[in-house]
Design a binder for these strands. Structure first.
Lengths: 255, 255
DNA sequence: ATAGCCAACTGGTCAGACCAGTTTGTGGAT
DNA sequence: ATCCACAAACTGGTCTGACCAGTTGGCTAT
């Protein structure tokens, strides 16, 4: 109905963004002061501030008290690295564990279904992925790991499950790839993880559905606990801001 | 360069975002009015507006003149109506059961977590939703049913779970006759479903996590089996999308 | 020349007012 | 009794002017 209408503040933010992106303002350059913009554009300073906050939320500029606003170093990438979700992870590390909590369920289900439904072709692909996993040095990269899990998920023959888990995994890869790399270097952990992979592989191939679910869930939970352990040791899993929260009641006890 | 300082408006936007993440505000839900937030948080309305603009720029919320601000759907993969996933439903009713298969897991997990983590406020909301569910004639509409499940999912305090399940639910609404609409007309089934709801409600409220998971999963599985039964009798389960219920008018649209 | 201070920037916050859409409930007309 | 219209009472949108709080640079006093 009313989609046409766009507030002045929106229009201002668009004009500023276009000005910046068109090269009128280069990255690092200082944006005119709020009062200047207000008089020059013929609007109140409040509007300018709202528009600037919008750009700030988009990551186009950053603002410093007493100094001014500056054009951020933005790579006009079409990647969704700047998606709202990414910001959520950056600001709220708990979300990572929420993610793993859900993954624990779905990976377990995937393994269970895979054990039940895997075809000959599936088994072949899973075996190939597992062998690649064994032969590759986990230190180099996590792709074999990715491939192994992927093969199992696909063997579940549930496209919804594949889709959802793929989405969750992408989220993780984009935000915590460093931490995954942090996990493997420790010899003891690496050995444990490889043992878990072996258990998953064997259970799925043997068609032991319940067992497959169990070990797959244990695997995710292990990763989860390990990350938490790393974090408690001061490792930088993801950026951690510290803020108190008395705005809304907190859940009784998390984790 | 003391980077530590963060303005009130930043903190407000952070807290609001956190509130949304915690499931206190689910996608599509209305954010409290600016004046309410201002008084509740003890800051001026200008600050609230700046914080909201920041979230808006980030795509977390969208705002409509005269109506309010609403939480946007921030998990794109499972909510995108144009997703290739939607095309799967076209000719493959089986996908519906894949969906329910996944839902079985996640609803179970949601109930389990809700039983563990529900706050006083959560319990109040769940109780209210359950009472509405009891009093309403299920034949009229499915809103109370949705509200009840939604309340439980939100009480899990896992934003990822909330968003994923919300996406799956939307998918179902878009493609399937609401299960209750199909199932309830039969007196025996309706009674069974209401009994299951009661079990879920009691288990969650009693904090019996394992039991809550069990009955919630059984509920989804029952719906699943029932639909399959109906379908085998020749009933039309899958339908063409006709809902335009979604109002994602994206204000960040250029031009 | 330099240490120190102060004025003039900058953004941050507040208060209250008014405009502009939306929703809702109540009234009257039917 | 039903239904339509219109007036509150919401909601967000904008403006004004004031004051607080960091930063910067220049000007004094040493």
């Amino acid at each position: 109905m009313q989609v046409k209408t766009m507030g002045i503040s929106q229009e201002i933010s668009f004009r500023l963004e276009r000005l910046i992106l068109d090269g009128g303002l280069a990255p690092g350059q200082k944006v005119p002061s709020e009062r200047q913009l207000a008089t020059r554009l013929g609007v109140s300073r409040a509007i300018i501030r709202e528009a600037l906050h919008e750009l700030q939320g988009r990551g186009v500029i950053n603002t410093q008290h007493g100094r001014g606003s500056f054009v951020a170093n933005i790579v006009p990438s079409t990647n969704d690295d700047n998606s709202p979700l990414m910001h959520l992870f950056a600001g709220h590390p708990r979300t990572l564990y929420d993610l793993l909590e859900v993954r624990e369920q779905l990976e377990g289900q995937a393994a269970e279904l895979a054990a039940q439904r895997a075809t000959h072709g599936d088994r072949h692909r899973i075996t190939k992925a597992y062998q690649a996993l064994e032969e590759t040095d986990p230190l180099s990269n996590a792709r074999p790991d990715h491939g192994f899990h992927q093969a199992i998920v696909e063997a579940s023959h549930n496209p919804i499950l594949v889709h959802v888990l793929n989405g969750l995994k992408n989220m993780m890869l984009l935000t915590v790839h460093a931490s995954v790399a942090n996990l493997n270097p420790r010899a003891d952990m690496r050995e444990l993880i490889m043992k878990q992979h072996k258990q998953i592989y064997q259970a799925v191939m043997a068609g032991k559905a319940a067992s497959a679910r169990k070990v797959a869930m244990a695997h995710v939970r292990f990763v989860q606990d390990s990350l938490r352990g790393l974090e408690s040791q001061g490792a930088e899993v993801i950026r951690v801001p510290l803020y108190s929260d008395n705005f809304h009641e907190n859940p009784t006890k998390r984790y």
